[in-house]
């Protein structure tokens, strides 16, 4: 198996790696770049725990090949806070107790940020369908939805 050399940008920083042709981006992030914030809950795109963005587009990193991201811009949970300043979604998740075990939290935050980028004032239903690709087994989603609603309110300055 010939390794593929890839140059890319992760959270604003240039990154280079060599990966197998069939190696998912998730494995590259976790095992080659040391970014373990994206989690493998299923490896088949059904749980959303590995959510990242590629050129701003929300994806499951388990359904993207590392080889594909040549020249792309990748953003992961590790790049969500601005230095010591948390993103409002991060802050609201803690304040609203929107996490219990926390394994799904990075994926939810990345997906919620993508949702609010497209729709700054979503209804509860839009939030629920917007986050349907992210499984949480602990919370029943109640507090997650409330945290996203509150963060959206704050981000809109309402």
């Amino acid at each position: 198996m010939a390794g593929v050399h890839v140059s890319t940008t992760v959270n604003g920083d240039p990154a280079e790696f060599v990966c197998d042709p069939d190696e998912p981006l998730l494995d590259v992030l976790r095992n080659r770049l040391g970014l373990t914030g994206a989690k493998e809950g299923c490896g088949t795109g059904d749980c959303g725990a590995c959510s990242v963005t590629v050129d701003g587009e929300l994806v499951c990193s388990c359904l993207v090949l590392g080889a594909e991201v040549e020249g792309r811009k990748i953003e992961t949970i590790e790049g969500m806070a601005d230095g010591d300043k948390l993103h409002p979604l991060q802050r609201k998740f803690i304040e609203h107790a929107a996490l219990q075990c926390g394994i799904c939290t990075p994926g939810f935050l990345i997906a919620a940020r993508a949702l609010l980028k497209k729709n700054a004032n979503p209804t509860e239903e839009e939030i629920r369908f917007g986050l349907a690709g992210n499984l949480c087994r602990c919370t029943g989603y109640d507090k997650i939805v409330r945290a996203v609603q509150d963060a959206a309110r704050e981000m809109r300055g309402a």
């Binding site: 069939d22 088949t44 795109g45 388990c62 993207v64 090949l65 080889a67 594909e68």
Partner: peptide
Amino acid sequence: ILAGGTDLLVRLKGGFVEPDLIVDIK
């Protein structure tokens, strides 16, 4: 052939396909 990959990567992960060549058309 790799387009969106949302089926192909699932099959690669499960070991159901082992192609010698992946052609990304994106």
